[in-house]
Computed example of a mutant assay.
Amino acid sequence: MVLPRSKDQLTPTQVAVIVCSYLLGSGTLSLPRVVTSEVGTPDGWLSVLIAGFLFMWLGYIMAKLGAYFPGKTIYEFGEEIVGKWLGLLISIFIIVYFLSELAFETRMLVEITKTYLLENTPREVTLALFLFIVVYIVVGGIHPIARLFGIFLPITIIVLVFILLLGLKLFDINQLRPFMGQGIIPVIKGILPSTRVYLGIEGILIISAFTQNGKPFKKAVLAGIALPMLLYVMVMIIVMGSLSVEGVSIRIFPTIDFIRSYEIEGLLFERFETLLLTIWILQIFTVIVSVFYVLVTGLACIFHKREHAFIYGILPVIYILSLIPRNMNEVSLWGDWNNQYFLMLCGISFILLLIQKIREKR
C-alpha cells in the first residue's frame, strides 16, 4: 500500500536544504576530538574530506535507488525488491535505527543545553519542551519542514563561518604540519570516526518519495552533502590549527573551547560561545525534526495508517529512551553504536540497488 503523497513536490533546492540541514548536527562540536583522537596527527581534516566524498557517492546511490520507485519510500519499495517478509525486516531495522538516532540526538541537545545554557533546569523539563516543539513542526508535514529548514540553514552557515573566521587570529599553520608526516595510514584510520557526521544521508531514501526523481534530484542530493563536508573540513582545519592536536584531543567539545579562547572588543558580542550554541540548537533541532518525520513515516507505511496516528504515540518511547544514558560517556557510546548501524544501512542500500539493477536487466 502506498500512502498518499502531497501533490506539491519538493523542489531541488528544498531537497538540498533538507539533506544539508540533516547532516549539520552534533558533529560540529565534537568532530575535531573524535577524529583527532583516532588519527593522532594533524591530518584529521583529510579523513573528513575523504569520508565526505565517499558519502557523496553513497548519497548518489541512494538517490538512484529512490529514482527507480517514484512516490515511494524505502519502506515501500524494499518489499518490491526483496519480497514482503525480507522487506518488512529491513523496514523494522530502519525504524529501530531511526528511533535510536532520534533518542540520541535529543539527549545530546538536552546535555549541551544543560551544560552551557540552562544549568539549573532539569533534563526532564528541557526534554519535554523540545519534544513538544518538534511535534508541532512535524504535524504540518514535509513542506512546512522544508520551509523552516530554508530559514534556519542560511543563518546557521553565516554565523558558523563568521565565528570561525573571527578566531583566525589564533590560527597557526604550523599546527597542521607536517602534512601526512606519518603516511596515509593515520588518515585511513580517521575515515571511520569521520562517518559519524554524515549520519543523515539515509533520509534520502524517504524524501525521494516527495520529489520528481531525475538529474535535478541527484544533483540536489550531492549539493546537500558537499556543503556540510566543506564546513566540517573548515571546522577541523581552524580548530586544530588553533588548539593543536594535543589540545583538541583532550577536550570534549573543542569547537566550543576554541570559540571561548578569543574575545573581540568593540563588537556587540565580545564572546561568541553563546551565539554558537544558539545556532547549534537551531540546527540540531532540524536534525531531530527530520529523524522524527522519517520515523513516523516508516511506522505509517508498515501499519498502513496516517503519520498522525504515530506522532503522539511515539513520544513516551522517545522520552524514556533519551533519559536512559547516565552520563556523557554513555551518550558517546550510544553514538558509536548508532554509527555502526548507520554503516549497515548504507550497505543495505547498496545491496538493494544491485538487486534492482539485476532485476532490470532480466
Rank of each mutant, 00 (worst) to 15 (best):
V2W: 08
P4N: 12
K7N: 14
P12W: 04
G27D: 03
L29S: 04
S37N: 13
L49W: 04
L49G: 12
L54S: 14
L54Y: 13
F55L: 14
W57N: 13
Y60D: 07
Y60M: 10
Y60L: 14
I61H: 09
G66P: 06
G66K: 04
G71M: 08
T73Y: 08
T73C: 12
Y75L: 14
F77G: 08
G78Q: 03
A103P: 05
R107Q: 13
I112G: 04
K114W: 06
L118S: 00
V135C: 13
V138I: 11
R147H: 08
R147S: 08
L148N: 01
P154K: 07
T156W: 06
F171I: 09
L176Y: 03
I184V: 15
P186T: 02
P193S: 06
S194G: 10
G203H: 03
N213H: 14
K215S: 11
L227C: 05
M234W: 08
S242M: 00
I250T: 15
L267H: 11
F269E: 01
T278E: 07
T286C: 07
T286L: 06
I288S: 05
V289E: 03
F292D: 04
T297H: 10
T297E: 14
H304T: 10
R306M: 09
H308F: 07
I311S: 03
I318Q: 05
N327H: 07
W337H: 05
W337M: 09
N339M: 12
L343Y: 01
M344A: 11
G347W: 01
F350E: 00
I355V: 07
K357E: 14
K357I: 15
I358V: 15
